[in-house]
């Protein structure tokens, strides 16, 4: 079973969601429901499964229900209908006490506007999760210091959040989330409030951390570039419905509908597409041809393009242990880079 399984979640906001549920299940659109009953459909039959150790990015514009969705995983919001399983445990079956334990042990969350406690110093903020778990002061300060070091904020531990810049504040948020050593990290538009340079910096830092920690990360964003950069899988939400789920390559190369195509239209494909996705599989026709370069399967097309253009010959794609997987020529490159 997957680490996180969300099955047929419906969330309807309004005074009597139960009465509207049948309507929505029968296929009424968000606008119709709002018009007829005054209820807002937050999520409409969303099912997702997220594997252990992967980064799942949930993308959509504001109002698409992505923040609502992520809050179902730690049950900050209760669904109107549906099931949520985390590590095989049905989250909706938990009693209030069990739910608190579940949140302490399993996951932590990073927020768009950081959600730091303004009356606590950086180290107190980072140690908050441990404080809730009633771990002794000395122990939790030690753990917190390690995390502060890990995000590069040593020396700032006794400052208050309002004394730090936005990027530093979000690193405090990240350190706080990691301090409890959770299996799952929920990141709600974690980098959206940062300016572009710091944002890409933080993305890099997250990728680096993730390569060591192998957490299960659920990342919410409205920025397609960000989702393509971070996500192992991407789910695209529109108006509370899940439009498409897939790897970055699948989303780029086979958009499910006009909504997704309009999104991916402006993306720099060369930067996103990995050699693995571009290559033609290894077969006999390639035997004996000249090979100009050997590329790792995770290299992006952008890195390979100069070589392809320069040599006009084949590039061999190999996996991490050096076994050949396939080949790229200028033909493959030009086919995938041309828009539709």
């Amino acid at each position: 079973m997957s680490k996180i399984e969300i099955n047929n979640i419906y969330k309807i906001f309004g005074p009597t969601p139960g009465t509207v549920l049948e309507n929505v299940k029968a296929g009424a659109t968000k606008e119709e429901v709002l018009d007829q009953t005054g209820h807002t459909v937050g999520l409409d039959n969303v099912s997702i499964s997220i594997e252990e150790g992967e980064t799942f990015v949930c993308m959509g514009l504001s109002g698409s229900g992505k923040s609502t969705l992520i809050r179902h995983i730690n049950r900050l919001i209760d669904p109107t209908d549906g099931e949520v399983f985390v590590s095989g445990q049905n989250v909706l079956d938990l009693s209030p006490e069990e739910l608190l334990e579940f949140r302490k042990k399993n996951m932590s969350m990073v927020f768009q506007r950081f959600g730091l406690f303004p009356h606590k110093t950086v180290i107190e903020n980072v140690a908050y999760g441990l404080e809730i778990q009633q771990i002794e002061l000395e122990q939790r300060n030690k753990t917190a210091m390690d995390q502060i070091d890990a995000v590069g904020l040593s020396g700032f531990e006794d400052q208050y959040p309002s004394q730090l810049s936005g990027g530093m504040q979000q690193r405090v948020g990240l350190a706080r989330a990691l301090a409890t050593n959770p299996e799952i990290l929920l990141m709600d538009e974690a980098f959206s409030a940062l300016d572009p340079l710091i944002r890409s910096d933080m993305q890099g830092q997250l990728i680096e951390l993730q390569s060591q920690l192998k957490k299960t990360i659920v990342f919410i964003t409205h920025d397609l570039d960000e989702s393509l950069k971070l996500g192992d899988h991407i789910g695209i939400l529109n108006g509370g419905r899940l439009v498409q789920v897939g790897t970055p390559e699948e989303i780029l190369l086979n958009p499910a509908d006009d909504y997704v195509s309009s999104f991916v239209g402006d993306v720099n494909r060369a930067r996103v597409l990995k050699a693995r996705a571009v290559m033609t599989k290894k077969d006999d026709t390639h035997n004996g041809k000249e090979i100009a370069h050997r590329a790792n399967e995770n290299d992006t097309l952008e890195e390979l393009l100069p070589i392809i253009l320069g040599t006009r010959s084949l590039i061999e794609v190999v996996d991490n242990s050096g076994n050949p997987l396939g080949y790229i020529s200028d033909r493959e490159a030009s086919r995938l880079l041309s828009k539709s």
Partner: peptide, 13 residues
């Protein structure tokens, strides 16, 4: 701030 409250809740407070 609602987000600060949510932060506390998300840690199981």
């Amino acid at each position: 701030d609602k987000e600060v409250i949510e932060a506390a809740e998300s840690f199981g407070a």
